[in-house]
Design a binder for these strands. Structure first.
Ligand SMILES: [Mn+2]
Ligand SMILES: [Mn+2]
Ligand SMILES: [Zn+2]
Ligand SMILES: [Zn+2]
Lengths: 141, 141
DNA sequence: ACGTTACTGACATTGAATATCAAATTCAAG
DNA sequence: CTTGAATTTGATATTCAATGTCAGTAACGT
């Protein structure tokens, strides 16, 4: 069993929640698609192999995965929440092309360091952050 | 006349748009309130001194001010757009308390530098960015 | 002053997020 | 295995901010 699946099972047990076929399936498809995906998109993908799974369940399960630390919500400024894998994957920034929508990830240690420094300077306790850079990708400029 | 007012007048002329009492008033109140304000909130404030101004006009004028470079849209993760002054005020990050909602601004040169570096590394042309740090303020932790 | 054009504000519409609830499913206890 | 309490599901309804519509109003060049 994959480590992500184990984590979910433990999370459910610990919370007194139930293990269901839908939750298994949704996690499986979510992990197999390594892009940033909205609840709608994920639902559309899952429907192909199991048309009986409802949008509500996909939506709720994405929240659940987020709570469990398996998913992370991201926002690219188009007014629609997207989710990405969070297990074994630290916070990172996104370069977002405002012309074609393409996104690219990046990690820079200097940024995390700067955030820590600024936070401690004012007594703020940082729990997470979001860094989006908007502009034009190579193709679009 | 304030420099912001002049900028708006020029912007309107250049675009073939009209100077109206509403636009003047909205800019004036927007500038007087130096917080991060939503269209709704700004409308509520303006209504006190002029109940005839409609929400639509406030909303559209905020977009206009954004286009003119007088306002900037910010988002604090509560699913509602807010606006802040952008004239003579560069991009900056925000520390956002997830408990009480308090926000604090900060500027760190290292971050802008890191963004430039990462961008040029992949041929991306950055136009603007958004950095939000979520956590607990001094009081709330 | 006039006519053209943009503006205004009340109202309607959209769309994503979230709430509701009856029927179905899980699962621990017996 | 059966039972029953508790959770889950999925269709549907609701919410709420953002945006669209449009007839009446106001700005401004001539
Ligand atoms: Mn990502
Ligand atoms: Mn700010
Ligand atoms: Zn592009
Ligand atoms: Zn606080």
């Amino acid at each position: 069993m994959k480590r992500e699946q184990e984590l979910l099972v433990n999370f459910l047990k610990q919370k007194g929640l139930k293990q269901t076929g839908q939750r298994e399936k949704i996690l499986e498809v979510f992990l197999a698609n390594m892009k940033h995906v909205s609840a709608d998109e994920l639902h559309a993908i899952i429907r192909k192999s199991d048309p009986r799974i409802g949008f509500s369940t996909v939506y709720r399960t994405l929240r659940l995965l987020t709570e469990a630390g398996l998913a992370r919500e991201v926002n690219f400024g188009d007014g629609r929440a997207r989710f990405e894998k969070a297990f074994d994957k630290g916070q990172h920034g996104h370069l977002i092309c405002t012309s074609c929508g393409k996104t690219e990830e990046f990690v820079v240690g200097a940024i995390d360091k700067a955030i820590k420094q600024v936070s401690s300077g004012v007594g703020f306790k940082p729990m997470g952050h979001r860094l989006e850079v908007y502009g034009l990708c190579k193709k679009c400029q």
